[in-house]
């Protein structure tokens, strides 16, 4: 690697809720224009990690640098601006249910006055087409969509402003395998053509390998493994092996009763 600072640089990030330590010293880098996939069991803190980077949650300690600038100590206005450079797909899509789909998709563009409301409707149609939705979906309300369609609208909203950074919280969960592959392709495309830097959380190993350059596994608040995404299936790491192959026996003990 060169000496240019990584796009996203995270050091010793800790976050706990009450007595529950969710992140316990997470450290990793994501280089400009690459994508990093994060895997890990349910409740291991993947969504919390993304929320910390987005500034929606404040970590207890550690640092988060974007382009070499520590965003945790930056002034609020600067953080707001940085947040505007991140497109986020939330785990449950989080569409605005009082607005029609087209307004959801172009919300960020309208907010930044990059678009007039009149042009927004057509623009929304084009963005929807990219995620495999018919432009006529634009006139529906989120409650009228299936779960998978909501996810794709959420994705459309995240990529609409062609942001510098893209975060995906389980982009393909709830989609059929074909649409899942289409979405993966779209994400890869965003990273390749826009030069965006991406972090994706996923439980789907095929998807992880399609999307990711790098991969990391979160377990008990720490990254227990980091490596190239195409070595996920034969990483030689006992945690990753157990996770990717879905074995019941291994170092990971599911805390079913806690």
């Amino acid at each position: 690697m060169t000496d240019a600072p990584p796009k996203i640089r995270i050091r010793d990030l800790c976050k706990s809720f009450g007595s529950k330590q969710v992140l316990d010293g997470v450290t990793f880098d994501v280089a400009q224009g690459t994508s990093c996939v994060i895997i890990g069991g349910s409740g291991s803190g993947k969504s919390v990690l993304l929320r910390c980077i987005l500034g929606l949650m404040t970590p207890d300690s550690g640092s988060i640098e974007i382009d070499g600038e520590n965003i945790l100590t930056a002034p609020a206005s600067r953080r707001d601006r940085l947040r505007g450079e991140i497109g986020m797909l939330f785990q449950n899509a989080a569409l605005f249910d009082s607005l029609p789909v087209w307004e959801n998709v172009t919300f960020g563009l309208l907010a930044r006055k990059r678009l007039s409301r009149r042009d927004a409707r057509t623009q929304a149609g084009e963005i929807l087409a990219q995620v495999g939705l018919d432009p006529s979906v634009g006139d529906l309300y989120p409650a009228e969509l299936s779960g998978g369609m909501q996810k794709r609208v959420g994705l459309a909203r995240a990529i609409a402003a062609r942001p510098d950074m893209l975060f995906f919280d389980e982009p393909t969960t709830g989609l059929d395998p074909i649409m899942g592959a289409v979405i993966d392709g779209l994400i890869v495309n965003c990273v390749k053509t826009l030069g965006s830097t991406a972090i994706a959380i996923t439980h789907d190993m095929a998807s992880a390998q399609r999307i990711g350059d790098q991969a990391a596994m979160l377990y008990q608040g720490r990254l227990v493994w980091q490596g190239s995404a195409n070595t996920l299936m034969d990483s030689g790491n006992p945690y990753v092996d157990q996770f990717t192959h879905g074995r019941r026996e291994g170092p990971i003990t599911m805390e079913l009763r806690r």
Partner: peptide, 11 residues
């Protein structure tokens, strides 16, 4: 449902 957080991420 995270819509308020979503607002934050959309400037």
């Amino acid at each position: 449902t995270d819509q308020i957080d979503a607002l934050d991420t959309l400037s």
